[in-house]
Amino acid sequence: MPKKIKLILALSVLLGAFGYLMVSGFNNAKTYYMTINEVTASADKGKLGKQTLKVSGKLVGESVQWEPSKMELRFEMISEDQKETMPVLYKGVKPDNFNDGIEVIVDGKYTVEQVFLADKVLTKCPSKYEEQQ
């Protein structure tokens, strides 16, 4: 076999493997950013399916129910325009700064029971590196 063809073959095998890794990895891990309004609107139309979502909103302080013995955290998030709320269930530890009005980002799926089942709850601290200006 001429050198060129060998080289092209070897490179295509490599590229093919790499492409396969990228595409399959991507399909397993893609997450859609949505607002609470978008989530409830899409859920009403039944368009959400089993997609992984990343939803941000503000925490409703008085909705927080934390049961340490069961490791179960329930709370509600409210949209920026204060119109829609979304209940969240998270099997995990309550974050340190879980106060009313803090910005919360949840990763997970929206279930048919209209509860957001979160795999991850992140709180955005208002003063990370830079102070608010």
Partner: peptide, 30 residues
């Protein structure tokens, strides 16, 4: 692959108008 995964939310928002991120499994799997 890491570059692609990192900038994907920016690219997808610019191209299709929907912000799509890739999670940790993407980086691990690749």
């Amino acid at each position: 692959s890491i570059f692609w995964g990192t900038v994907f939310p920016i690219v997808s928002e610019a191209v299709v108008g929907q912000k799509i991120a890739v999670g940790i499994p993407f980086f691990n799997q690749v």
